[in-house]
Nucleic acid binder design. Structure first.
Lengths: 110, 110
DNA sequence: ACGCAGGTTCAACAAACATCATACCTGCGA
DNA sequence: TCGCAGGTATGATGTTTGTTGAACCTGCGT
């Protein structure tokens, strides 16, 4: 059962939901960006420079969170986002490598 | 450039399109079914027993075809469907293994 | 105390999409 | 030649979903 924030535990992460979450360009960008950074990297939602409004951003991060791709934790004022690397690697070995080797450019960071 | 039937060539297959194609339960089922069969297996569209109408079936197979996941060839009266195993393995190594180890039950075949 | 930046919630809208019925085409077999 | 099964094309429809602005909450820094 997912926790109060909607995080599924490792066993609950299922491939169709993950694929569905990754099917959106915005969400794909977030995960593809995170996967290229060192393990444990934390970033704020707004640090990704997504070209959408705040509410849309909240929406996308919720989808990612509920699919089990990211973990969000309240850190004072901001909500920090981290890739669930170990969980995903355990559940779907090779998936992250796939995203890493197929990461699109991150416009906001260039 | 895709051929007349909308098949992209190997280099044109891109991950976001593939993920989008796999995000639908029906299409996921088709690919997850094909990936468990011997390489080169050919099946008709209707042999998957998808619980949808004929036109919907055509629609889903088109999406799969244009995403580069399957190859369809007119074989007399029927249009045979084959998984583009080599192309997918070359382009996204590990993706098919992922689907194979996470294949859902195929209701129509059980 | 105040402002502000980061996020959320809500209601609404627009685009994408899965679905279907109908009509149609095409080989194959009787 | 006729019927039929497999598929396609064309709207049309209803749902999903990505998108937004406005109102609001919450810490942090001044």
């Amino acid at each position: 059962m997912p926790d109060a924030d909607g995080h599924p535990n490792r066993e609950e992460i299922n491939l169709p939901a993950v694929l569905h979450a990754l099917a959106d360009p915005m969400r794909y960008r977030v995960v593809a960006t995170l996967v290229r950074e060192p393990d444990g990297t934390e970033r704020t939602c707004s640090s990704f420079g997504l070209p959408v409004s705040k509410s849309t951003r909240t929406h996308h991060f919720r989808v990612l969170r509920e699919a089990g791709l990211i973990r969000q934790v309240d850190r004072g004022n901001s909500r920090m986002t981290r890739l669930r690397r170990a969980d995903l690697e355990a559940r779907f070995p090779g998936l992250l490598d796939l995203l890493a080797s197929n990461a699109p450019a991150e416009p906001a960071a260039s």
